[in-house]
Amino acid sequence: MGNFEYIDISGDVGLRAFGSTLKEAFLNASLGMYSLITNLDSIAVEKTAALSVESHSLDGLLVSWLNELIFRFDTYGFIGKKVTIDTLECDTGNRAGLNTCKLSAVIEGEEFDPGRHEGKFLIKAATYHRLRIEKTDGQWEISVIFDI
């Protein structure tokens, strides 16, 4: 489905997500995370949610974003099949040297039903552990580990 692969780590699970743009890499990280929770083929597009997050670093933005998706799933059962990222931008530097990074996106999916959908990993949170967002040879690569 998306361009991502799983990282093996003792105790928990992680993802490596790729994209020719940063937006695409974020999108693939989102889909990759959803695919750790359930089989995405079984998810229908019935509901949409418009979400946005802010942070003062790009790393922080990714962690906040994935944690927002985890919150939506764990609280309302909402799980996405399709992710459209509208905005992803960082303004560099205020006086304290902090950035303002913003992301807004639309998620299309449905409410998870344990009777119909397979439950794989119960993800508690996205972490900063070994977190990397890098561009090499024109390709973006994200590594992120989840607490399970």
Binding site: S10, G11, D12, V13, F121
Partner: peptide, 8 residues
Amino acid sequence: GRIMSRHQ
């Protein structure tokens, strides 16, 4: 304490 990752 785990010795094997979940995917393993």
